[in-house]
Design a protein around this nucleic acid. Structure first.
Lengths: 200, 200
DNA sequence: TGCGGCATGTAAAGTGTTACATGATTTA
DNA sequence: TAAATCATGTAACACTTTACATGCCGCA
């Protein structure tokens, strides 16, 4: 076989359709922002593109919901071919995480920064990550209703309605929170070190 | 002003030249792999490209070292315009980190995976991250010699010769190790949860 | 009456990765 | 004698982001 016809973002969309049930591109964007933001982000343009691609592959089907005075909602649902693709993807080993963090890069070359620039950037990062941590801790709200319990392939699962009750969801949430906490601890520590250095 | 003429990878290269002294593209690639891998990675093609771009901007100068039976080494050094650019970059607030981790994405939709696929992926990740942690802990070796102590802009600094003695370097190293440890702890925990679930 | 939300998409540009190209020397 | 290291670069491709495009409704 040659080039893969899909990549992580494709499966992100597909997974949401499998988990949440039929959704529009707009809904999917909301879910990406609120549910997947910690592991994969997507612009709306990319989501619409993936939907188009997957429709071509037969992984999703589209149904048009007519609306007055607003563009029609196009609601996509996963097909059995889509489920098969999702399962097959799960069998492939994931690419290793590659961090790509501008703050760390700047910190690395902090000795070339104008006075206080590094600590200012650290302070700004603290604010941003504190905010994220808060967001992760708040139960996600204003999400499209999940009307279809996911179907575990072969393994029946007692949990069905709330995302908080899914072990995978729980594990990933825990990761996101752990990560933000670790990051924040480090940022506070870095700030201390920088302040102490300034005194000399 | 219009589009920025440089982006993080550009400053990664520039920072290394400022910190390490004159280097070839090949040297820079080694440094990216061994020193910057935790915060920003780069293919060699990208590095050669950035050098070309920065030469055009007057941020670096090139000197050719002739060699027999091998392509000449082109050794680049930072100019004062380059130093100014680096300093100015340090004054800009960094873009927020966006994680993009395929393992987390797969974990999120673990309920659609074939039996044991998730735990296998977790195990593979454990091996990879353990290895990284080891690498981070080993003092970096086989690096091009750093022949020029960096010049802190305005602030004299008692440390000069070894990278381990730079506070910024130390802080970033500590981050990298913290991060890998947090990730690993979580992976082990996830594995336990998954094993327990399997019993039911 | 201005802004945010709802709702869709296309086009272009910006970044990053992989493949192509070459070839001698050193090490196992 | 096969693989890794040294050493450079170009071209093509893959993925992501930003800008362009449109327009009503509800709220403050």
């Amino acid at each position: 076989m040659d080039r893969p016809e899909a990549y992580p973002i494709t499966y992100g969309v597909l997974g949401l359709l499998a988990y949440w049930g039929p959704l529009s591109g707009y809904d999917l964007k909301q879910l990406f922002d609120h549910v997947l933001s910690a592991m994969w982000s997507a612009a709306h343009s990319q989501i619409y593109n993936e939907l188009k691609r997957m429709k071509g592959l037969g992984w999703v089907e589209m149904e048009r919901e007519e609306q007055e005075s607003r563009p029609d909602r196009k609601v996509y649902s996963i097909t059995s071919a889509g489920r098969a693709a999702l399962e097959s993807w799960q069998g492939q080993p994931p690419a290793v995480l590659q961090l790509r963090d501008e703050l760390l890069l700047k910190m690395m070359f902090g000795s070339f920064a104008p006075p206080d620039a590094v600590s200012e950037n650290v302070r700004a990062s603290i604010a941003l990550h504190e905010q994220r941590l808060l967001q992760y801790r708040q139960t996600t709200q204003h999400l499209p209703v999940r009307d279809q319990p996911r179907q575990a392939s072969g393994r029946p699962n007692p949990y069905a309605s709330q995302e908080e009750e899914d072990i995978y969801f729980r594990l990933v949430s825990r990761f996101a929170i752990n990560f933000e906490q670790t990051y924040l601890n480090w940022l506070y520590e870095a700030l201390e070190v920088l302040e102490e250095q300034k005194k000399e």
